[in-house]
């Protein structure tokens, strides 16, 4: 398997707080790797030959790359903002393409059907027009002015609200969602989906959150996010074809799918094709 330009990107490979010296044996794009904490307390990632891979510890997670990253790991300024609670949600293994996991996270039209009575409910199914752009300065996909009616937008929400969203694709398998923060309307809650590509059709998904919510017990915050993601998993593991098509010839994307289409255009432009299918079939 030739990975191509995605080799030089950063990927999450574990929760920093859970590392020990024995290490966690895992995989990155088909390569066995070990993620460990060394005697000084620093994270260390090695491949099967014992070679040390580049490491960053950010947003609760350890990040590495099999190649030679030309760009620093993307910034999430909210991660340094006082007053936020940071939630390491944990890991969910999904038998799907890592790119499919990201695409599903960018989609709101499925909320009433997959996350019924939580993130959406009939008859509030309409997806209003929103804006999508590729921001050239940071080379990221951004969708803004997204809004959707939600019966229970967050653990801290009491009753239905129209939630505002912004989506951001910061790396081929890293995506950040900004959404209405019920207890603090002037700020955005940050919910991310960091995806570790194990193979082209298997991934470990590490959601992470930076919230303004001092009241909800940590267990409930984690449980809420895991409930949502397990609902997504039942969809993701049954998608056909398994790889993400970069040619939509067999699909019928609508205006509601503009974020997904922008993401796929961005992947296509960068030749990020690990987990993608080039020809519609």
């Amino acid at each position: 398997m030739i990975v191509g330009p995605m080799l030089d990107e950063w990927y999450p490979v574990g929760i920093f707080g859970q590392l020990d010296e024995a290490g966690r044996k895992t995989m990155l794009m088909g390569e066995p790797i070990v993620v460990a904490r060394n005697g000084n307390g620093d994270a260390r990632v090695t491949d099967s030959t014992g070679r040390s891979l580049p490491v960053r510890v950010r947003y609760g997670h350890v990040w590495t790359s099999l190649g030679d990253p030309q760009k620093e790991l993307f910034a999430i300024p909210e991660a340094d903002q006082p007053g936020r609670r940071f939630v390491d949600v944990g890991v969910v293994r999904v038998r799907c393409s890592p790119l499919r996991a990201v695409e599903n996270f960018l989609d709101i039209a499925h909320f009433p059907f997959v996350h019924t009575d939580i993130l959406g409910a009939e008859p509030h199914t309409e997806v209003q027009a929103y804006k999508v752009e590729i921001r050239e300065d940071v080379d990221e996909v951004w969708a803004t002015q997204v809004q959707f009616y939600q019966p229970q937008a967050a653990k801290s929400a009491s009753g239905g609200i129209t939630t505002q969203y912004m989506y951001r694709v910061a790396g081929p398998t890293s995506t950040v969602l900004y959404k209405t923060c019920p207890p603090k309307p002037s700020e955005w809650d940050v919910i991310t989906l960091f995806v570790q590509p194990l193979t082209e059709d298997l991934c470990d998904v590490w959601p992470w959150m930076a919230l303004f919510d001092d009241d909800t017990p940590m267990t409930d915050l984690i449980h809420f996010q895991q409930t949502i993601f397990l609902q997504d998993r039942s969809i993701l593991e049954n998608q056909v074809p398994r790889l993400l098509p970069l040619d939509p010839g067999m699909e019928m994307p609508t205006r509601a799918d503009l974020t997904s289409v922008a993401y796929r255009r961005w992947l296509k432009r960068h030749n990020f094709t690990y987990g993608a299918q080039l020809v519609a079939q």
């Binding site: 040619d247 010839g249 019928m252 994307p253 609508t254 205006r255 799918d257 289409v261």
Partner: peptide, 20 residues
Amino acid sequence: PELIDMMEVGCLLGPINVWV
């Protein structure tokens, strides 16, 4: 109009050897 929107959204990607 929604169908013409769908046409535009599909064409933005198009086949793999095309860059729109």
